[in-house]
């Protein structure tokens, strides 16, 4: 009953919030770039490379997708140093996020690649495109265009998942929240504030990715761009 919201104490530590926000954005941004590339690369490899490589990629995808990100993070952060690989918490977090996101992106892009019709590939080959050109323009680009919404929501999810990195003391937004909380004892206000910041990040990213999708894939496939480049 007697509870009164006091956000003042929380806002007084906005320097910490800002620091945390930057760390979160940096982690998420790098994870999305590298995890996205890793996933696209593995999905491409899986459809081009020999079977054995495909099995390895499948094992990676299944292992990562069926274990918690937190546990993966703990293995990297505590495990790698125990065999002599020195890592900062930030480095461990980034590796963990990239490995984690990569598995989801592999799976999503693979589904996109499988949805491209054989006849389109044959049509591409008959246009005297090289195999690589066919793959790049007729398979991969349309595949990514098609699964872009799924990729975008996975990117948002990984951004939220950066909060788990506070478990290994990366000073991102959630960690700063608990710093502020133990300073001010205004737990609820602190977490409401931080929740709103995450919400703003998530909404911004959704809008951003929707816009990016519209710019990158204006026709919904990569064929438009191919035609443009060949000057026809």
């Amino acid at each position: 009953m007697g509870f009164q919201f006091q956000f003042g104490a929380v806002f007084a530590r906005s320097d910490l919030l800002l620091e945390g926000l930057l760390q979160t954005l940096q982690l998420a941004g790098m994870a999305i770039v590298f995890g996205g590339l890793l996933g696209i690369l593995l999905a491409a490899l899986r459809s081009l490379a020999p079977r054995a490589a495909g099995v390895l990629i499948d094992v990676y995808v299944e292992l990562i997708r069926n274990t918690p990100f937190l546990v993966q993070l703990l293995i990297i952060y505590f495990g790698l140093p125990s065999i002599g690989v020195k890592l900062t918490a930030e480095q461990a977090a980034l590796i963990g996020l990239v490995v984690y996101l990569g598995s989801y992106v592999t799976e999503i892009v693979r589904a996109g690649i499988e949805s491209v019709h054989k006849s389109q590939i044959e049509a591409g080959l008959s246009l005297a495109l090289t195999r690589w050109q066919v793959f790049r323009y007729i398979v991969l680009a349309p595949a990514i265009a098609r699964v872009w919404p799924a990729l975008a929501s996975q990117f948002v999810l990984v951004t939220l998942a950066t909060s788990v990195c506070s478990f290994i003391s990366v000073q991102e937004l959630s960690a700063q929240a608990s710093n502020i909380e133990s300073d001010t004892f205004r737990s609820f206000e602190t977490y409401i504030t931080v929740a709103l910041i995450y919400l703003a990040i998530a909404l911004t990213l959704r809008v951003l990715f929707a816009g990016l999708g519209a710019v990158l894939f204006p026709t919904g496939s990569g064929l438009g761009r191919l035609r443009g480049q060949s000057g026809a």
Binding site: V156, L160, A161, T162, S163, V164, S166, S174, A177, S187, F188, Y191, I192, V194, A195, Y198, L199, I201, A202, L203
Partner: peptide
Amino acid sequence: QGIPVLILLFLAYYG
């Protein structure tokens, strides 16, 4: 869907 599970947890716990 815009808030990490970790923060939801704290919100519920302290709320």
